[in-house]
C-alpha cells in the first residue's frame, strides 16, 4: 500500500495551501489543533512508471494522468479528445488494463505501471495491432488511433481472460470474439472519421492470429 507520507510537501506549497484554505476553499487551516490531519498541499511529487521507465514529477494535484503524460513527460502519442471519458482517445493501459487517462489523477497512480502507445511498438518493430491497423487502413485522420490500439490491446486481454460483454450470449461460457463482440467491446472508442469497418478488420486479424 502507498504511504500517505510519500507525498512530498515543500514549505512553499504548504504556505500556498494555507493561504488558499483561508480564502477560497475553506480547508482546515494548518494548526496545532489539526495535527491529526495530513499536511495540506496543492502539489505532490508523483512517481510514474511509463513503458517501463520511472519518472518523478512535481505536479499540481489537479493534473490528470493524460496531462501528466502529454504536458509533463511530453509523450504526445496519447491523445486528448473530449477530456470527459466519452471518446476513448486517451486510452492507456494501467497495470495492463485499459482506462481513460483523462478521468483519473496522476497522483492516484504513484508506483503503478502505465503503458502508452509509445510502449507498444517502435517504427521498426510494430505491435501486431499497429501492423494490422496499417494493413487494413484502420484510420483516416489518425487522431483516435493510439486510443483505439491501446483499447484493443486491453480488449483482447479481457477476452483472453474470459471476461463477458453486454452481447455475450451465455455468461457461463467462454465468449468468442465475433464482430458483434468486438464492436460492443470497443464502444468506448469513437472514430469521427468513421473508419470503424477497417478498425474492426484490423482487430479481427489479430484476434484470429492472422497478423
Amino acid at each position: 500500500m502507498e504511504n500517505p507520507t510519500d507525498i512530498n510537501i515543500s514549505r512553499r506549497n504548504l504556505l500556498k495551501a494555507g493561504a488558499a484554505s483561508a480564502t477560497a476553499f475553506g480547508t482546515p487551516a494548518m494548526s496545532a489543533a489539526q495535527n491529526t490531519a495530513p499536511p495540506q498541499s496543492l502539489k505532490a511529487t508523483v512517481t510514474l512508471t511509463v513503458n517501463g521507465n520511472t519518472h518523478e514529477l512535481a505536479l499540481d494535484l489537479r493534473t490528470s494522468l493524460l496531462d501528466a503524460l502529454r504536458e509533463h513527460l511530453h509523450m504526445t502519442g496519447t491523445k486528448k479528445g473530449c477530456d470527459h471519458g466519452q471518446c476513448g482517445a486517451c486510452t492507456v493501459l494501467l497495470d495492463g488494463k485499459r482506462i481513460n487517462s483523462c478521468l483519473t489523477l496522476a497522483v492516484m497512480h504513484d508506483g503503478q505501471q502505465i503503458t502508452t502507445i509509445e510502449g507498444l511498438g517502435t517504427p521498426g518493430a510494430l505491435h501486431p495491432l499497429q501492423a494490422a491497423f496499417v494493413k487494413h487502413d484502420g484510420y483516416q485522420c489518425g487522431y483516435c488511433t493510439p486510443g483505439q490500439i491501446c483499447s484493443a490491446v486491453g480488449m483482447l486481454d479481457e477476452a483472453a481472460r474470459g471476461m463477458p460483454s453486454h452481447v455475450t450470449g451465455s455468461l457461463n461460457e467462454r465468449p468468442l470474439l465475433s464482430p458483434e463482440e468486438i464492436r460492443e467491446r470497443m464502444s468506448g472508442n469513437i472514430c469521427r472519421c468513421g473508419a470503424y469497418a477497417n478498425i474492426l478488420d484490423a482487430i479481427e486479424d489479430v484476434a484470429e492470429g492472422k497478423a
Binding site: G85, G88, I99, L171
Partner: peptide, 15 residues
C-alpha cells in the same frame, strides 16, 4: 452482471 455490462464503456468499467 448483465446490468454492469450494460453500463458505460469497458475503460470506465475497469475503473
Amino acid at each position: 452482471a448483465r446490468a454492469l455490462l450494460a453500463g458505460a464503456s469497458a475503460q470506465i468499467r475497469n475503473r
